[in-house]
Amino acid sequence: MDVGTQLPVRTLPTRAVVTGHTGFIGGHLAARLANNGVDVVGFSKSTGGDLLHDEIPMDGVGHVFHLAALSYVPDSWNDPAAFHLVNTHGTTRVLEKCRRAGVSMTFVSTFVYAADAPMPVSEAALPAPANPYAFSKLAAEDACRFYARTFDMDITILRLFNTYGPGQSGPFLVPTIARQAVDPAVSEISAANLAPRRDFVHVDDVVDALVASARLPGGGAYNVGSGTSHSVGDVIAACLNAAGTAKPVRDRGEVRPNEVMDIVADISALTAATGWQPRIGFEAGIRSVIDSLV
């Protein structure tokens, strides 16, 4: 795609499905859509929705944002088949519902590029997933491309880099570090490895990109990141600074299988297509996480 060409846009639908609407990103997206007057139909495992067996309500729906997935990379090494089943076959079932209803779709993917891809990495780089989670997402992307090509469907793929922000929980890096920074009972910050660098993009910027994607005619895959990278050590320093405290840092020296040591997104394609730009800087974003915990 010519990154200098802005694509035509559609208006937001009056009714939209958000799969994974109770998750971290899905919750922020559902709230934003509702604030914009969109009637949100939620579908999530936590509210009884099963991607592999249940039907998604599609009456009056104008667009589907498909975020529901198994997503924690370390867990994907323990059960690659489960990740493939939910993330690939589950996505194919959503695509089929969209095909039958004549509805456009945004599919949320991830970093699917090679560990040694030159940075910043653009969408033109050849895919080479470094873990089972990314493999399952790339297979789901292939399903999206097949449906778009074969059935003339409007499907947009967003490849999210490391999303963070208020409300993120579980074992992900930023909330793990942030909780240690604000907890007075924690005497030191412990991290598996201080060296890896990631492109951290704030959840509000990701939601901006998702909303923008619903206005596209479909057919493209776009990176969603900040365009810069920060190390685990940078995250710790920013969390401690935002929390106004000082704690010693322990590097456990652990290395994950096929660890990618530096990731930076080339975000020019989505900017050119929609005018989207990340608005929230790294330090301000980390501060928003710390503020949500105190």
Results as ranks from 00 to 15, higher is better:
270 L>Q: 11
166 P>I: 09
104 S>A: 14
178 A>W: 09
102 G>A: 00
10 R>E: 06
228 T>D: 14
226 S>L: 13
55 E>T: 07
96 E>T: 13
100 R>I: 04
41 V>H: 14
162 N>R: 10
137 K>L: 01
217 P>L: 12
6 Q>W: 07
254 E>F: 09
267 I>W: 03
22 T>W: 05
200 F>H: 11
74 P>H: 04
277 Q>G: 00
196 P>F: 02
89 H>R: 14
111 F>N: 12
271 T>S: 15
9 V>N: 00
182 V>H: 09
198 R>W: 02
21 H>I: 00
12 L>W: 00
77 W>H: 09
42 G>F: 07
91 T>I: 04
272 A>P: 00
42 G>D: 12
112 V>C: 04
221 A>T: 11
134 A>Y: 04
279 R>M: 13
176 T>H: 08
193 N>F: 05
128 A>G: 00
230 H>I: 08
172 F>C: 01
254 E>P: 06
76 S>E: 02
62 G>T: 11
243 A>P: 06
237 A>R: 04
250 R>G: 02
145 R>E: 12
2 D>K: 04
101 A>I: 02
22 T>G: 08
72 Y>F: 15
215 R>I: 05
128 A>I: 02
44 S>C: 03
119 M>T: 14
215 R>K: 15
90 G>M: 13
70 L>V: 02
166 P>D: 07
250 R>N: 08
261 M>F: 11
45 K>C: 01
109 S>P: 00
235 V>P: 02
56 I>S: 09
155 I>L: 13
218 G>D: 14
20 G>C: 01
212 A>K: 02
191 A>N: 08
258 N>E: 07
80 P>K: 11
89 H>M: 03
189 I>A: 00
209 A>I: 09
99 R>Q: 03
83 F>G: 06
111 F>T: 11
223 N>S: 05
248 P>F: 10
52 L>H: 08
188 E>G: 04
129 P>D: 05
103 V>I: 04
18 V>A: 01
9 V>K: 11
53 H>S: 10
54 D>L: 01
125 A>E: 10
111 F>I: 10
215 R>T: 15
190 S>H: 14
20 G>M: 05
2 D>S: 04
78 N>W: 06
189 I>M: 06
102 G>P: 07
80 P>G: 10
92 T>F: 06
140 A>F: 10
184 P>K: 01
47 T>E: 09
136 S>F: 05
212 A>T: 08
40 V>D: 06
68 A>W: 01
16 A>C: 01
224 V>M: 00
249 V>A: 12
279 R>E: 12
25 I>W: 06
203 V>K: 02
62 G>S: 03
75 D>N: 03
222 Y>H: 12
28 H>K: 07
127 P>M: 10
116 D>E: 15
186 V>Y: 14
40 V>S: 02
206 V>C: 10
222 Y>A: 08
235 V>A: 10
256 R>I: 04
245 T>F: 03
108 V>T: 14
134 A>L: 03
99 R>E: 08
257 P>F: 13
8 P>R: 13
